[in-house]
């Protein structure tokens, strides 16, 4: 049994690629964890599509302002330099190419960069939120995800079988086993857990993993859990 990364560890790895001074949108749920691991000395400004730039952690219980929430409807606080704006301006920031990074969750990612993350099929009540806007607006679109589903099925595939959120939009995938870039419609393996062999990784990935240069060991500090 491979000792795969936890969600917090995947989020830590994704946070290492966020440069100083960039504007970042984190999807609801798992991607929100990325904000906890900003490297020292770097300041990213977090955008939430419901109209806040520069928000911080959740307030203590009882100190919430329920008009001050994030896209996941959770209470937030403000950092110095924060700003409020309406929804059309918020998505002008997204669509207009002003947002540097969007990090989202995924049901499936295809080797050409297609992303499926909004609908599990016709039996579900469909809900899309801002995901379809974010994937075509941010300069860099990254995904954080388990490498396989809870039933062991690959989430990195040749073509998505689930309804698409966006076409050819993902640049980088941080999984519980590896870091993979999408270049020229191919998965390019950049990092993998040292305990996982290439064959093992390929066996749980439903499209070919290209090697282009050195594959770096994916390591996370022990105190990140």
């Amino acid at each position: 049994m491979i000792n795969k990364l936890s969600n917090a560890q995947i989020a830590w790895r994704a946070a290492q690629d966020i440069e100083d001074g960039v504007y970042v949108n984190l999807g609801i749920g798992f991607p929100e964890l990325v904000a906890r691991f900003q490297p020292a000395g770097r300041e990213a400004v977090f955008h939430t599509e419901n109209g806040v730039l520069g928000f911080g952690a959740a307030p203590p219980s009882g100190a919430e302002h329920w008009d001050l929430i994030n896209a996941g409807k959770k209470a937030i606080t403000l950092k110095p330099g924060a700003a409020f704006f309406h929804h059309a301006d918020s998505f002008a920031m997204v669509r207009g190419g002003h947002l540097d990074v969007a990090i989202l969750g995924a049901y499936q990612v295809a080797e050409n960069g297609d992303l499926a993350n909004w609908s599990t099929g016709p039996n579900d009540v469909p809900a899309v939120g801002g995901a379809m806007d974010l994937v075509h607006g941010a300069k860099r679109v990254a995904v954080v995800t388990e490498h396989v589903t809870k039933h062991g099925q690959p989430k990195l595939v040749r073509r998505c079988s689930m309804p698409l959120t966006g076409v050819a939009c993902v640049n980088r995938i941080y999984t519980s086993l590896a870091v993979i870039d999408i270049e020229s419609s191919r998965f390019v393996l950049r990092e993998k857990l040292p305990a996982v062999s290439l064959d093992e990784l390929q066996s749980v990935t439903a499209a070919e993993l290209k090697i282009d240069g050195t594959v770096v060991d994916l390591t996370v500090p022990g105190d990140v859990s």
Binding site: H87, S90, V94, R95, P126, V128, G130, M132, D133
Partner: peptide, 19 residues
């Protein structure tokens, strides 16, 4: 109500909805 087909839904991506 949605599952009972008692309400119609037009789903719109949030940024498109705002615009």
């Amino acid at each position: 109500k949605y599952r009972a087909k008692e309400i119609e839904l037009e789903l719109v991506p949030q940024g498109t909805f705002a615009e």
